[in-house]
Write a protein that binds this DNA or RNA. Structure first.
Lengths: 203, 203, 203, 203
DNA sequence: GATGAATGAGGATTCATTCAT
DNA sequence: TATGAATGAATCCTCATTCAT
């Protein structure tokens, strides 16, 4: 029964923190930020309301932490960190990672879409993602251009829309739009779009 | 001296009703249902809180009326009411009407997306739209099939996703994704997908 | 189509007034004063809210009119207006009139009990009735005394309580305490009490 | 520093709960349920409105708890839990306990009468009491029968009415009908009724 | 006389947040 | 660290009453 070391305390803190964030994520995603009370979060996390405020400054703060953590995960996972143009295998692998991400973190993405449409705090989520997504967009743009598209910006737009729409459907109507099936079709569709849009169609 | 005729009353009611619904639509779309108070709606509508309850039973009721009215507009506008396969012109015209609808009723579609992701009432909005959208899907399916697609279901899926994603972007990031430009690209993209997916690619 | 005479107008006014009072009486009695809204009264009376205010100054005013009218009916009906002691027949007839009154105006008496226990306006209803009932009490007192009671005040108390309890039961639990059966028993019981309480028991 | 023990919390809760219930009882009894606001209850209890809702789900809930607690007190106090016929001493003792109960819990009984006449919730209070009172009625019935009454049901009716009326008067007009004096007269009166109603009057 | 739109004050209820322990 | 009692502002909703027609 020796007093816990500060490392142990730190571990406990990190775990509690995670518990709260996960409870909040589920509730925010499923019911919305405003329809979720701190009481409910605390109850779902198995702690007291007071303790939640020991870990986070406010309900808003919890949301921001969730968004930030999710954002970093996305960043870490997708950051191409690569110069030059992607090969086709690399591009496909990138798409598959993206689909896996949405599939494995359904709740986060549900929350992402909700916040995209109706930001809770002043800061606009889509701006944040827009800025962060810039390298991704550039990467895709270069890939598309490398394939000979006569309008890479335009093609990027509709391909992005197709991806975003796919993820949205995968979130809200997974029964009708099963994500695995969609993945195959979307990847295939992207190439069809790219190839049919070649500057020189008579390849 | 004499009381207003019932026609006069009816006119007043219809106009005031519209005022309330429009104020509420704007606020619900922009800030979300839960973040919008009846006070705010009343203030925006230039009336007292109490009067709003003279016209609608509850905040929920206002939302339902908005959804219903929007739904009927969509239905009236898009109902193909047509047997047989669409010609290409008809199909394009249908797509253009759809884009016009989103463009001209930006707020309603913002609310639509918000409710799609996080329904406020028990009834699932996507179910309602899924049922209503069935004829549309069938129509598109037939059109795609008529063009010789080897996988019309799959093609329909990604085309639907592309449309939904386009509208979503047009709603949340119109600066980056201007709807008119998107419309051209999407219509073009759809045909590229369809044609490149022909059973017999060597046309 | 000659203009209505002022007499006709007066008749109309009286009838409307009665309609309102009856609607209000039923609602006040059944649901209570505070649980009854002017809207409900107007709807039940088949008139508009505004018109109700044409006839009465306030909801309170309606209640007061109901109470006053009921009070006068009671007064007119029961006022003994008689000097000297009642004969047994007269006393029994008085009791029967009282029972008939409660039986035929169930709603008024329900309201009477409700107001007796929880007055709505400052003025205490029981005081009003106490004052008005004084002649009645005196009459009963004299009757009891004339029968040789050794404690007419005390006997009057328990007889009054028996009557009041009987009417209360007849109002709230008429199935278990049917008023007609109760009437026979109560009248009988009163005489049993009086006679058994004679100064000179060996009659 | 360390959090309160659950026993400490429990003590706080029990005491505060009692404070709220007592404040509410007084107000409900004196002014009626609908005329009493949660604000008033909170103010009288010396707490904030919000805290009242930490203890009770709704105003209705407060009322129900008051009724239930009072009901249990009555039940515990009066439950005869006795087979066979009561002796005269036992019967008198039972009546005296009943009078003491009303005298010592004036407010509860005022509320009881108010709810009897105009129930606030759907469930009828008189039904609840009717069921609970059944053993009491049976007991009184047997006692009356044991005294040789030729119509024990009828005698029970008028005796019950006399008691109920006495309590009602004791509640609403204690000055004119002082409960202690009434008690003597009523007990005496009950025996006069019973004895004068013997099958064999020629005792 | 008659209507119902309109108001505003008040009432029930919820909830983020603080605080004593 | 941890608890939950406590607060007060905000929210949904009701309703007596007024008023233009």
């Amino acid at each position: 029964m020796s007093p816990r070391t500060s490392t142990q305390f730190e571990t406990i803190r990190q775990e509690k923190r995670k518990v709260i964030l996960e409870a909040a994520l589920e509730l925010f995603a499923e019911n919305g930020f405003h329809a979720t009370s701190m009481s409910t979060i605390a109850k779902k996390g198995g702690i007291s309301k007071g303790l939640a405020y020991n870990y986070f400054e406010s309900k808003n703060d919890i949301l921001e932490e969730i968004v930030d953590e999710g954002f970093h995960q996305v960043h870490d996972l997708l950051d191409p960190d690569k110069d030059g143009v992607l090969s086709e295998e690399e591009f496909i692998s990138f798409l598959e990672k993206t689909f896996a991400m949405v599939k494995n973190n359904h709740r986060y993405w549900k929350l992402y879409f909700a916040l995209m449409i109706q930001p809770v705090v002043s800061e606009n989520l889509s701006e944040k993602y827009a800025k962060a997504g810039e390298p991704l967009f550039r990467m895709m743009h270069e890939f598309i251009a490398s394939k000979g598209s006569s309008d890479p910006e335009g093609d990027l737009m509709i391909i992005s829309a197709m991806l975003e729409g796919t993820f949205l459907y995968a979130i809200v109507a997974p029964d009708i739009f099963p994500i695995d099936r969609m993945k195959e079709k979307v990847i295939d569709g992207i190439f069809r779009i790219i190839q049919s849009g070649n500057k020189n169609k008579a390849v």
